[in-house]
Design a protein around this nucleic acid. Structure first.
Length: 211
DNA sequence: AAGCTTATCAACCGCTTATCT
DNA sequence: GAGATAAGCGGTTGATAAGCT
C-alpha cells in the first residue's frame, strides 16, 4: 500500500507558524476541540496539514504547557527514566507534567546527553548495545519489584494523567500533577507495566528484545 | 564590526500503531 | 482478516540566536 504524505497537497504552508495562525488554531480548538486533526485545518481555515496543526498544538499552544528551564528534579527524572526505558520520550513526558516529548527530547540531546556521556566515560561504562540489554532487564526487574509491593489506592496511572491533560478544564490537570509529584517513579506499576506491554514485550515477541 | 562556529529548539519526515469499514 | 485511514512517535533538519575569534 502506498501512502500519500499528508502534506503532499500543493498549497499547504510549511515552516514556522505565525501569530495569526496560532490564534486561529487555538480559538478553533477551544471552540470545537480536536477530534479530527485531518479535517481541522480545513474547517479552521488554515493552510496547514493536520499533522502540523497537531504538533503545533501539542508542543507549543496547549494551555498546560510548562515553559522555561527544567528544574533539577525534572532533569533527574529524565536521566533516570532514560536509563531505564531509553528514547521513549512520550513515556518520559507522562512523568513530567507540562513538558512535551519534543521538548524533553531536545533537552536531552542539547544538555543531558553530554552530561550523562561524560559521567559514563569511565572503565565501567557500558556500550549502547549493553544499554539496550540493560534497559530490557531493568523494565522486567522494575515490574517484578513493583508487582510485589502494594499500590496506594489513588494511584495515578499514565492513562488517568492522559485523560486529565486532555480535559478542557485545568482542574483535573492540577490534580494529576499533584498526584504525580507525590509518589516515586519506580513504584508506578501500571506505568511500567504498560510501557513493557506496549513496547518492550511486543518487541520481545518479535525476537527483538535481548533479555 | 564582520565572519565563523556552536547551541538551541520548532518543525518536518517517515515509520509504526490503532481504529474503522 | 484485509485494507484504508488517522493519529502518534522518534529521528532528523534547518533557522537563528549566542558566543567566539
Amino acid at each position: 500500500m502506498v501512502r500519500i504524505p499528508c502534506c503532499e497537497n500543493m498549497g499547504l504552508k510549511k515552516g514556522p507558524w505565525t501569530a495569526e495562525e496560532d490564534l486561529i488554531l487555538v480559538s478553533y480548538i477551544q471552540r470545537f476541540g480536536h477530534s479530527n486533526w485531518r479535517a481541522l485545518p480545513k474547517q479552521a481555515g488554515l493552510l496547514r496539514c493536520g499533522k502540523s496543526c497537531r504538533l503545533r498544538w501539542i508542543n507549543y499552544l496547549r494551555p498546560d504547557i510548562k515553559r522555561g528551564n527544567f528544574s533539577n528534579e525534572e532533569e533527574e527524572t529524565i536521566i533516570k527514566l532514560h536509563q531505564i526505558i531509553g528514547n521513549r520520550w512520550s513515556a518520559i513526558a507522562t512523568k513530567l507534567p507540562g513538558r512535551t516529548d519534543n521538548e524533553i527530547k531536545n533537552y536531552w540531546h542539547t544538555h543531558l546527553k553530554k552530561r550523562v556521556d561524560g559521567k559514563q566515560a569511565t572503565p565501567s561504562t557500558s556500550s549502547s548495545a549493553d544499554q539496550t540489554t540493560k534497559t530490557s532487564s531493568n523494565i522486567k526487574a522494575v515490574i517484578n519489584n513493583a508487582r510485589s509491593s502494594q499500590q496506594p489506592e489513588s494511584f495515578p496511572t499514565h492513562q488517568n494523567i492522559r485523560y486529565a491533560t486532555e480535559e478542557k478544564s485545568q482542574e483535573p490537570v492540577a490534580t494529576a500533577v499533584e498526584a504525580i509529584n507525590g509518589f516515586s517513579t519506580v513504584n508506578d506499576t501500571e506505568f511500567w507495566y504498560d510501557i513493557f506491554m506496549e513496547a518492550g514485550n511486543s518487541r520481545e515477541m518479535h525476537g527483538d528484545l535481548r533479555v
